Simulated assay, not measured.
Amino acid sequence: MRVFEIIIYQLNVLFFDRIRAQKKNQDYSIKSATKMVMLLLHNFAEIMFWYLSMMICILKLEGDFSQQSTVWDYIRSNILNVATFNSNEIEKIVNKTNSNIANLIFFENITGLFMTLLCLARFVNLLPTVKSKDEM
């Protein structure tokens, strides 16, 4: 639910806050671009954490959580799934009954990461410029 909330909030900030401000004849502004970028990076890490915890819970509930593999093996495999945008490894690990749930979780995770990257692209250019002592 938290990842879904992040997606909805980012859609609201990215598209609809500016429209609401224009309808009220107000200037659209944010308090701090630096704070917004830091919060978006936090959202990025949080989405990865929730994806990892949901996948480990599915494996634990199914009883497929092998005693030979460590938690770090599952962390590495889940990060690899997200980094390559490939859910084939999930389907190998999870049985067919929970495969649809795992794919839904994967889709939600990718959507959240994509929205975070869109918002980061929007707000990074608003960061204050850094003055340089060295002139070229």
Rank of each mutant, 00 (worst) to 15 (best):
L39S: 10
M54P: 03
F49Y: 13
N109C: 15
A83P: 00
Q22P: 00
N86K: 07
S99G: 03
S87Y: 06
N98H: 12
K60M: 10
L104R: 09
L59A: 10
F114I: 12
T84E: 07
I56F: 06
L52S: 09
V94T: 02
M36K: 05
Q67A: 12
L14S: 05
N100H: 12
N81W: 04
S69M: 14
L52P: 00
S66E: 15
E89I: 04
F16Q: 14
N95W: 04
E62T: 07
G63C: 07
Y28K: 07
I6K: 04
N98D: 08
K96E: 12
Q68D: 15
I58V: 14
F49W: 08
A33P: 02
M54L: 13
D64I: 09
Q26R: 13
L117S: 14
L41F: 04
Y9G: 05
Q10E: 08
L40E: 01
T70Y: 04
N103S: 12
I58K: 04
S29C: 06
L59Y: 03
F85M: 13
C57A: 14
F49L: 10
Y9C: 01
E46W: 08
E108A: 10
L113P: 01
M55H: 01
M36E: 07
I30W: 02
F107H: 12
T111W: 03
K31Q: 06
S32E: 03
F106D: 00
D73A: 05
I93R: 10
E108R: 08
S66K: 15
L80A: 13
L113M: 12
L80D: 14
S53L: 08
D27H: 14
Q10F: 01
F44L: 08
L117W: 08
E89R: 07
A45D: 14
R20Y: 12
Y9V: 00
L117V: 09
N78Y: 15
E5F: 10
A45V: 05
F114H: 15
M115L: 09
S99P: 01
I47P: 04
K24I: 08
N43Q: 08
I30R: 03
L39N: 10
I56S: 02
N88G: 11
I90Q: 02
D17E: 15
I19Y: 11
V71M: 14
L40S: 00
T116K: 05
K24D: 14
N78C: 11
K35Y: 09
V71Q: 11
R18C: 03
N98P: 02
L113E: 01
L113C: 02
Q67P: 06
S32H: 02
N109G: 12
N88H: 11
M55L: 04
F16H: 14
W72G: 03
I105Q: 03
D73F: 05
T97L: 11
I47C: 07
S29E: 11
K96A: 13
I6Y: 03
I56M: 11
N78W: 04
F49I: 05
F106K: 00
E62K: 06
F106Y: 04
M115I: 04
I7P: 01
H42R: 13
G112P: 02
A33Q: 00
K31W: 03
Y74E: 02
I90L: 14
K31E: 09
E46C: 02
C57R: 15
K23H: 12
L52M: 08
I90D: 02
I93H: 09
N95A: 04
I93G: 01
Q22F: 08
I47K: 03
